[in-house]
């Protein structure tokens, strides 16, 4: 008899952890993409100062460990600004911003990938900068961006596992609990790993389907 065997209730725990992981991933993805879109607008309209700030912040986020970002937000912000911070809020904030930093770069290069001639042509016809963005750049940039974006999100899904370190009860944290209780590391971490793997594959296949559809509507495939 081991220290404490697996019980059926462990499945409930795992399901809860999975729910937290999926929930937080979905939330941070939506918020992150929204922020990235705002960043992209600021960049597109060349808003002075703000643009430099955004570029600097996103470079810092891309080039430092997410774990350090989590510590900065979870331990640093409350101590410095004397505010309250729950693990969940800190995690959501950090992962959202991190996703935003990477997505911003993807969006920007998506827009850059649209040929300059098209933009010039649109200008000649007297379209405003907004109209050019809305009708010329966005549809094509979306098609260019979706592939890298799916790759990013598959990666971000795995990044969410780090929030367990600041005490969010996500899938990895549940793994930690079960691991300590059952002392069956191989079983626990294999199951947890497989769940992440399945999520990643699901995400990738949904992404591939969306990419196919977007590309079909943008790329002219001949008669």
């Amino acid at each position: 008899m081991r220290y404490a065997d697996f019980t059926p209730y462990d499945l409930v725990l795992l399901a809860q952890g999975l729910g937290v992981t999926v929930g937080l991933f979905t939330l941070t993805t939506l918020v992150g993409l929204l922020i990235a879109a705002l960043f992209t607008l600021v960049d597109y309209y060349r808003v002075p100062v703000l643009r430099q700030v955004i570029v600097t912040v996103s470079e810092a986020l891309k080039n430092s460990p997410v774990l350090v970002q989590l510590f900065l937000v979870f331990f640093g912000l409350p101590a410095f600004f004397h505010i309250n911070m729950t693990p969940f809020v800190a995690a959501s904030l950090t992962i959202s911003l991190n996703t935003a930093a990477f997505a911003f770069v993807i969006f920007r290069s998506g827009i850059d990938a649209v040929e300059a001639e098209q933009v010039a042509a649109a200008k000649v016809y007297g379209h405003s900068r907004w109209q050019i963005l809305r009708f010329v750049l966005l549809p094509q940039a979306a098609a260019f961006s979706i592939g890298p974006l799916v790759g990013l999100l598959v990666n971000q899904l795995q990044v969410t596992s780090l929030i367990s370190v600041i005490g969010v009860f996500d899938l990895t944290k549940i793994g930690n609990i079960l691991n300590l209780r059952t002392l069956e590391p191989f079983i626990v971490w294999t199951v947890v790993g497989l769940l992440y793997y399945a999520l990643a594959k699901l995400l990738a296949s949904v992404g591939a389907r969306i990419e196919k559809r977007l590309r079909r509507s943008v790329v002219w495939e001949g008669i």
């Binding site: 598959v154 795995q158 990044v159 969410t160 596992s161 780090l162 367990s164 370190v165 990895t172 793994g175 930690n176 691991n179 002392l183 590391p185 191989f186 971490w189 294999t190 947890v192 790993g193 992440y196 793997y197 990643a200 594959k201």
Partner: peptide
């Protein structure tokens, strides 16, 4: 396609077991 921290725990807690 799996998180590094999960892999790390797999080895860290698992290797002594074997």
């Amino acid at each position: 396609n799996t998180p590094f921290i999960v892999q790390l725990f797999f080895f860290f807690y698992g290797l002594p077991e074997i």
